[in-house]
């Protein structure tokens, strides 16, 4: 698989405070990555370093397997950092033209990308007349101008109202579907959960985990079931090899799994034991639970 970005032992020391401490990970083509971490965990600093705006204290990073210089690599990516930065008196189009000139690409796609983010009708308005949501959408359009090989988004929904958040999320999901590699930094877990296949978890500048979302805690989820005859269901469940624990609640039983399991097999086995289930479903552990669990381990 093609590696887009490889980070090796990156460290940023702000006079004694280690914002990023020995972080290493790899971004491979085609996945959607989330960088998770509470505020101040070093997400933005890490991105700042690979985007050439923060100087690393130690360590190195390599774009596209080291085939180009850093600033040429940046011409092939699209990135939005924290808040949209544009020239206030220039219009949307003039700002995007400037970006095209910097990235050394043709200006043909400006209208197309403005349409993607729904800003075509305001293309001649000066940037300083835009609302925050529009500014953020313009930033996304600008990041898409070069059809980037990777799109880096740092807190793209920060400070937006619910409609704005929904709009940005829809755009991100739309882009993810087209096969673009995305690196999304956020402290909003449900945001990451909705789009990411892989996560990198940072805390206090250190990497806690890097890999597919599902394997974060080696967990297989929880099965919820219920039957009229709860006592025999309890006996039945206790004897099953896949159950780590069985817990009775008001709405039935919660069984934590130690392997992946076919639900219809549970149903058939229960029926063989003369238990008729009236509730049976599998619930994956939410990213939030996983995240809390992971960050508490250390």
């Amino acid at each position: 698989m093609k590696t887009i970005l490889e980070i090796k032992n990156l460290t940023k020391d702000y006079s004694g405070l280690k914002a990023v401490d020995n972080v290493s990970f790899k971004i491979e083509k085609g996945h959607v990555y989330g960088i998770l971490g509470p505020n101040g965990s070093g997400k933005s600093t890490t991105l700042g370093m690979v985007l050439n705006v923060v100087n690393p204290t130690q360590g190195s990073y390599e774009w596209f397997e080291g085939t180009t210089t850093n600033h040429d690599a940046l011409k092939r990516i699209g990135a939005i950092i924290e808040r949209p930065n544009f020239y206030p008196s220039m219009s949307a189009i003039q700002n995007l033209k400037l970006v095209c000139k910097i990235k050394n690409i043709s200006q043909d796609k400006i209208e197309e990308k403005l349409a993607v983010v729904d800003l075509l009708s305001r293309k001649h308005s000066p940037f300083n007349t835009f609302s925050l949501g529009m500014k953020q959408r313009l930033a996304i359009a600008s990041a898409l101008l070069n059809d980037p090989e990777i799109l880096i988004l740092d807190e793209p929904t920060n400070g937006l109202d619910p409609q704005g958040i929904r709009k940005i999320r829809d755009i991100i999901q739309h882009i993810a579907k087209s096969g673009t590699t995305i690196l999304l930094a956020s402290h909003l877990l449900d945001e990451v959960e909705k789009v990411c296949s892989h996560v990198i978890v940072l805390r206090k500048g250190k990497t806690l985990y890097c890999g597919p979302v599902d394997e974060m805690n080696n967990n297989y989820g929880v099965v919820h079931l219920d039957a009229a005859d709860r006592d025999s269901l309890f006996e039945f469940l206790k004897g099953q090899p896949y159950a780590i624990s069985v817990k009775e609640e008001n709405e039935g039983f919660k069984v934590v799994l130690n392997q992946s399991i076919d639900l219809s097999k549970i149903n058939a086995d229960a029926f063989k034991n003369n238990i008729v289930l009236h509730k049976l479903f599998l619930k994956k552990q939410s990213l939030e639970d996983q995240f809390i669990q992971l960050t508490n381990h250390i």
Partner: peptide
Amino acid sequence: SNRTIKQNLIDGLSK
């Protein structure tokens, strides 16, 4: 003050 210098660098202009 507009932080466009940051955006210029991110867009691929070298220092």
